[in-house]
Design a protein around this nucleic acid. Structure first.
Lengths: 195, 195
DNA sequence: ATCTTGACATACCAATTAGTATGTATACCT
DNA sequence: AGGTATACATACTAATTGGTATGTCAAGAT
């Protein structure tokens, strides 16, 4: 049995993923957990700080781990890149997950105009991911494994956009097939980067 | 001076774009408009039906118009396609617009898990756009202007994903430059489709 | 001239919601 | 043993919010 604070984080993360941050009702989440608001407000001063903790302790580590292997690879960049894309496929393996979309994208649409704390954190996570991809692409170029005729910065943005957009379109279409088409297309695109 | 109903639609559209559907406060919107809730509930039975009207009467026509020219083109598909992408660039010309993101993407993240009416409408709009792109690509292939070695369905999903994702990443980064990189990359990608 | 209908305004309500004030039990320290 | 900090539970509140019931006024129909 995990500790209460961690459980509060996870359950509220799920509620946010399902209803959006504005749609989360603290009362309902604690009721479902079988605890009370006393516990919630014991660990978190308010709803926004709870949201920040979810970003800092759950989402940021999760997303930054995804591209880590590509960024730190020393050879076989092509293989590692395809592996990362494959892991995105696995990430949304159930229909349920496709219908809920990407947690990071969801929050990115909802929160930045409403709250500075969310805005800064979502900016940082996205920026760091972009740097990870960019670094990986540059290393692959330096290693002579990828062509030099593309701009790694631009291409990094393109990867992230296509993937996030893939989640979004798949969510709109309620179709995992749509997401997989985008991943397949990105794999093909990736082949074109190789020397 | 436009009629009240139309004005209610537009003002609430802006409020949704800024705060999300769940974040819209009917009281505030009508107060800013200088009208009262009497007018609002005279024209719309409830908040959700107001949202549906915004989708049906404002968003759907707007988005379906974008790819219309590509779908209906009879020659110079490459030029028309680049024109569409260019129009997306123009669509988000101010920093303000970039920071608010794409209205369709925003709603696609927020509403489908919460409401069936939104889900159906967002599905239909996205599906129709995808068909438009797909049809345009097929026609370009039939006309002998685009290569035959790509799958139009898959590529259509890829276009929509990259564009929607571009809005999303640009919103996260609060940077129009990010969006323009994605558009630039898509233009380059489009060149590769030509025979 | 009166009657109806459409287009709103005013006043009000019931439910919800984030947050607080207070109580209490247990573990730990001295 | 007695004090203290931690980890919650209980009960309550103030504000908000979507929605309603009712009133009013002007324009067109009869």
């Amino acid at each position: 049995m995990t500790d209460t604070r961690t459980e509060i984080l996870h359950k509220n993360y799920e509620a946010i993923h399902r209803n959006g941050f504005q749609g989360v009702r603290a009362d309902k989440v604690v009721a479902e957990m079988g605890i009370t608001k006393g516990a919630l407000y014991h660990y978190f001063p308010n709803k926004f700080d709870l949201g920040y903790a979810i970003l800092d302790e759950l989402l940021a580590p999760h997303y930054l781990k995804i591209w880590e292997s590509f960024e730190r690879a020393e050879k076989n960049f092509g293989v590692v890149l395809l592996g990362v894309l494959e892991s995105y496929r696995d990430f949304a393996k159930t229909d349920e997950e496709i219908k809920l979309g990407c947690p990071l994208t969801n929050l990115t649409q909802e929160m930045p105009p409403l709250d500075e704390g969310f805005r800064k954190r979502l900016h940082r996570i996205t920026h760091q991911m972009q740097l990870q991809v960019e670094t990986g692409l540059k290393n692959a170029q330096l290693a002579g494994e990828f062509k030099l005729d593309f701009n790694p910065t631009q291409t990094a943005f393109f990867y992230l956009s296509a993937i996030e957009g893939g989640f979004s379109v798949a969510k709109a279409m309620q179709s995992r097939a749509a997401f997989e088409m985008v991943i397949a297309q990105l794999k093909q695109f990736s082949e074109g980067l190789k020397v």
